[in-house]
Design a binder for these strands. Structure first.
Lengths: 129, 129
DNA sequence: TTGTTAATGCAAGCATCTTTCAAAAGAAGA
DNA sequence: TCTTCTTTTGAAAGATGCTTGCATTAACAA
């Protein structure tokens, strides 16, 4: 997603484009590998980890980035480049992720609804080497 | 899974059935809700959390329990009652889980292999209320 | 330029899980 | 039963990943 559009999304919510936010976006925009908060911090000269956490969270709510939960529960972030719902195949070693073009959600969610569940979300990630 | 069979699985690996292991199994066998290590500890009179963590890990490797990763990365455990591979729909509030009888893994893994990945595993959980 | 509010950095805190190690308990044989 | 060997345990400390509180700073609209 382009910075211009992101500024607009921020403004829409009464939020501001700041130096730290610009730097975080720079980092995320210049890689295809999903990054953890720490990865992002490491790539920026001087930024607090808290600031990174708060901003990826903000970007997540704005739909600017998406989050992938790794085996073990650690979270990594990637710029939202595709608008359609999709999942990933993730390398356990380097954490590089590729998009998969398939999601069985509709089938599953039908079954889940039959069981009486509402407000469904799902996690589906494939891991390999 | 019945305790008898579990003792056999332990012995197979040169491991022992102990009081703490018995108690952990009791707790897991007497509920349908997946439990966290802390949940299990709370239900037992006097057991160290470390012991719980170590033993659910052991049981996991033996195939006696399976692990569910909640949104947020926390892990919970449930006695393995079905032998076939399956996934869950999990309540975000009470963590009660029901089994789903569907898994798209084979389709997805074909695609993942085409991308050059090996040693595939996957996480697929559906959450709701 | 000024005032308002959002955003930052720092410190501390918290939840979950792991490692280390000495002591205790289980299993097997004498 | 006693001995010996190995597994298992519990206690303490540590690691990791993320969050909260709060005083200060920076956006940005008027």
């Amino acid at each position: 997603m382009e910075t211009e559009k992101i500024v607009a999304r921020l403004k829409q919510e009464g939020l501001r484009m700041t130096k730290p936010r610009e730097k975080i976006l720079d980092v995320l925009q210049s890689t295809s590998v999903p990054l953890s908060a720490e990865d992002i911090q490491r790539d920026i000269d001087s930024i607090d980890l808290v600031t990174v956490y708060r901003n990826v969270e903000t970007f997540l709510h704005l739909g600017v980035v998406h989050r992938i939960i790794l085996e073990g529960g650690k979270q990594v972030f990637q710029i939202e480049s595709h608008s359609h719902h999709h999942h990933h195949i993730i390398c356990r070693e380097c954490h590089k992720a590729e998009c998969l073009d398939f999601c069985a959600a509709s089938k599953i969610e039908k079954q889940a609804k039959a069981l009486g569940f509402t407000q469904l979300t799902h996690v589906f990630e494939v891991y390999g080497l």
